[in-house]
Write a protein that binds this DNA or RNA. Structure first.
Lengths: 339, 339
DNA sequence: TTGTATGCGTTATCAA
DNA sequence: TTGATAACGCATACAA
């Protein structure tokens, strides 16, 4: 059992069309520079043979891979897949493929087969890093392709970034709660090392600081429904029970709502809750969730576009693009009773 | 502004180590066949130069891409990204990369740049198709790499498949409702052309048929929260109001619950609801959702493994792997009052 | 406008 | 056990 027919090569097309391989190549890559008559003959031969260019050979010759690698912490997380969709979109428009590496599962250690082996010009024309927990040293090899950081970022890794305005979003959220009269506000955060959590914490402080306030409670979650659910117990255990909670993402907010309701607390009558991200589910939660809208697909698209711009004309300035966010007010937040 | 240093090539390593390029190549790919002494010298030279093999050149020489392409209908859909995570996992263990193509956005028409241009041996060593709506003719080009269908499938496209047991899952769901005394059961389906919906409808019929029953109502949704929400109105409009609903996925079930509650119906007291997939949110919904558990990451992993087996030893038999599913009973289903 | 010839960086064959 | 060299399939500089 052998392969039916070897794929036709440019040579076969050339012979059939009665021209040289160079001419065929030109017809395929830059048709305008070849005579109408010749072009037609070549196109006919291409159609007859069913020829398609061998991408590997072209890539080697042109010293480019034709693809961009996205490094994501968890491919199964819908948060990242929405960003990936935006990236894929922008790349495809430029004829580039999307490669994906799940950094949590890839062994970061071993030099062969581990993450470092992917970070080469011979494997990707560019990198989009969505994982802020990676070691910046990974990207310092001379053979590392251009990098754009998106969504999260890595301390100590220079270069262009595109981020949502996390601090502003958190500030909007807390200011909204303050405006409703709430003063005892709890903050359910992401993992402490996470850059998103850090800037959102900063936004919380920006909102509370001028009033001489601080969160009355703080709990570190893991951006998961389960950790939000667990926060309900933490909230109930507070001596001064918070009247409002800002959660670093919607999953935790929804988990928290479920946990509170299971314990007999009502949202928003007893506790107001704000999330972050505006995932689709936010609008369909038990109590529709007030949250901070962040355009994830757009963020991915901008990251890809920035990478392509950077490849075309490497800029000296460190570009940092901060995308606006907005508060979406739904029913999970209400005025503090008696306020 | 030029590139700092051109990447070292195998030739540079060879010169530094005082051996031939062939020997360097051997040390890298099959160290055991080269003398200890020589090997050490080469390894030292590799370390000094920081050499890493040029993957493009190796791929061209070996006539393989080193990657598998997954065709997904919507990358932003968490349903698919969970499967992708399983695929990525299995591939990485074999040293293969994951390429992703979002088929809904790629223009299927144009020969250049469209989907067909990706379906070549020179672009991927194999294909995993997660989109059952694609034209089977796409995969009939002689240069198309091996294909495995996963999750959904394409009528008229032969070859190995790995599927969840959709019919059994739907049957379990409906049998559960029947066991609770429900007889007026509504079915909220996916898009009519979708293969998943078709086999789930078959499972529904299998459960109802023996009792001489059929769904009292049927509504075609789009696997989205919004379409589930819209189904609430359809349910209320039924002259014989259904007492239970089976939804083809959890998103629609959750949307439906939200819609029903907004109209004053209680789940499960007034209406029992079963979903499909067991997405994480199912357990944290307003009313925890009874649903059919399907191991999505596992499904992806098995698809990738099947592709790799197939590459190693193309089998003549059409392998079709049906993965078991199970019913997860939560609180959204209850006995029919008075039953 | 077209053809010839070289090189992209490897791996694999063959000979030593 | 190692070295010389021919592919792999294409794009492009240069010549015609």
């Amino acid at each position: 059992m052998k392969d039916p027919e070897p794929a036709p090569r440019i040579h076969d097309v050339a012979k059939l069309a009665g021209v040289s391989v160079a001419t065929v190549s030109r017809v395929l890559s830059n048709p305008s520079i070849v005579a109408e008559r010749t072009r037609r003959a070549v196109e006919k031969a291409v159609a007859e043979t069913g020829y398609t260019v061998n991408v590997m050979a072209r890539n080697l010759r042109q010293q480019q891979v034709g693809g961009v690698l996205a490094l994501v912490p968890n491919l199964a997380n819908p948060f990242f897949s929405a960003i990936l969709a935006g990236i894929a979109d922008a790349l495809r428009e430029e004829g580039l493929s999307l490669l994906v590496l799940d950094t949590r599962r890839a062994d970061t250690g071993s030099a062969t087969g581990g993450i470092p082996s992917y970070l080469t010009r011979s494997r990707a024309d560019g990198l989009i890093v969505l994982d802020g927990s990676l070691d910046p040293a990974l990207f310092s090899q001379p053979s590392c392709p251009p990098v754009v950081q998106a969504c999260e970022w890595i301390d100590g890794l220079a270069g262009p970034r595109v981020l949502a305005d996390n601090a502003a979003g958190a500030r909007f959220a807390v200011e909204h709660l303050l405006g409703l009269g709430h003063r005892r506000i709890m903050h359910v955060t992401g993992p402490s090392g996470n850059t998103l959590s850090q800037s959102r914490a900063a936004g919380v402080a920006q909102a509370l600081g001028p009033l001489g306030l601080a969160p009355v409670a703080r709990m570190e979650g893991a951006f998961t429904l389960a950790s939000g659910h667990a926060a309900a117990a933490a909230l109930m255990a507070e001596p001064e029970r918070p009247t409002a909670v800002f959660c670093d993402n919607d999953e935790m907010a929804i988990g928290l709502m479920a946990g509170l309701q299971a314990r007999g607390l009502r949202v928003p009558e007893d506790v107001s809750i704000v999330g972050f991200d505006n995932i689709e589910m936010a609008a369909y939660a038990n109590v529709p969730l007030t949250t901070v809208r962040q355009r994830r697909a757009h963020l991915g698209r901008r990251a890809a576009e920035m990478l392509l711009e950077h490849r075309a004309a490497p800029k000296l300035e460190e570009e940092e693009l901060i995308l606006p966010v907005e508060l979406v007010i739904r029913r999970s937040t209400a005025p503090l009773p008696g306020a």
